[in-house]
């Protein structure tokens, strides 16, 4: 739902590799149309293509073609050298730019924080599934920020995280702080990622709960009869049963972090302080929108695409390995 409630994160949520195969298999018509329609007019035979034409045309021209064009741009120059082939110059400029290096370092930080961002909704979903008191309310409430635009979330947290704002007042009450959440270069990126997790954990929670609905309840009963503690139940029953859901959430959460934090960055920090909260997507926007350097921006886009591909391939590798073990 989300760059809005994170469109990109949801968009990718439906695209796990496995169910793609399932859909591909299921969509095969059970039976072709009755024979006699074969003599149908030419218009009839062309019908599938007519029905598909708008979708295919739009997707090819406005999604697939730009991808090719973008890679091409990244090997041409900006400004005076507009359109001229420059080889790898843009990539050299890119990796020499401290801002882009910060952006890449922040991607590394996101990877490190990923397990936390997956574990939180996983644990909460477990408790909700085990029916802690109030589980129905929790489910509805936790999911709610996920439908809000990052712009709204960012704007609200601008108020909450202000130096003299509510959070610092609260912390001051217990003798901590005040912390300059969005003004301290060492803190700001954590503040923004924290807000992103706050805004999106409900999405992963719902996916986890859907995974739980496919879990065999008798396994949990058996664990209970055997006197397993909660941590034991989670470790030996729930985690193995939900392996695929967990992997799915890992990948979608990572993709969400890489592609749907623009709104937050734009509203909360503008990439600052001192460029400390840059991410590749923000860098691309700044180079394209502010500095009018489309070729350099395209090079950054290509790098981002490679990062996403690596995430995707890592997922496939993990799936293969677990597939072999089972």
């Amino acid at each position: 739902m989300p760059s809005g409630g994170s469109p990109s994160s949801v968009r990718t949520m439906v695209a796990e590799r496995d169910e793609v195969a399932v859909v591909a298999a299921a969509r095969r018509p059970g039976r072709p149309f009755p024979r006699r329609t074969r003599r149908g007019s030419r218009a009839e035979r062309l019908a599938p293509f007519v029905l598909l034409a708008p979708a295919v045309l739009i997707i090819v021209v406005l999604r697939l073609w730009p991808l090719v064009l973008g890679v091409n741009f990244s090997f041409t120059g900006d400004g005076d050298r507009n359109g001229m082939p420059v080889g790898l110059d843009n990539y050299a400029t890119l990796f020499a730019d401290p801002l882009f290096r910060t952006a890449l370092r922040n991607v590394g930080l996101l990877v490190l924080l990923l397990p936390v961002a997956v574990a939180i909704p996983g644990l909460l979903a477990t408790f909700i599934y085990l029916r802690v008191p109030g589980h129905r309310v929790f489910r509805g409430v936790y999911f709610f920020p996920a439908v809000l635009s990052p712009v709204i979330v960012g704007a609200i947290f601008n108020l909450l995280l202000a130096y003299d704002g509510p959070l610092n007042t609260l912390l001051g009450g217990v003798g901590i702080g005040p912390v300059d959440w969005l003004g301290d270069p060492d803190v700001a990126i954590f503040a923004v990622v924290g807000v992103h997790v706050w805004a999106t954990f409900g999405m992963a929670l719902v996916v986890f709960l859907a995974g739980f609905s496919a879990l065999d309840p008798s396994l949990l009963d058996a664990a209970k009869v055997d006197g397993a503690t909660l941590p034991q139940t989670i470790r030996h029953v729930i985690v193995p049963a939900l392996t695929r859901t967990i992997q799915f959430v890992f990948v979608t959460t990572m993709i969400g972090m890489l592609t749907s934090m623009f709104g937050l960055l734009f509203v909360m920090t503008g990439g600052g302080p001192e460029g400390s909260t840059y991410l590749p997507e923000y860098y691309i926007w700044v180079q394209q929108g502010q500095f009018n350097q489309p070729a350099l921006a395209s090079a950054a886009s290509s790098v981002l695409f490679v990062i996403m591909l690596v995430v995707g391939l890592a997922q496939i590798a993990v799936l293969r390995r677990t597939g072999r073990e089972v």
Binding site: V14, A24, P66, L67, S301, F305
Partner: peptide
Amino acid sequence: GSSVLFLGILAALFIPFQVIMVPLARI
């Protein structure tokens, strides 16, 4: 060509907007 088209559309699902935004703006 049904499966080719389906896979092509599926592939487009994995292209984030940030990756194509510069050339798209030009188009």
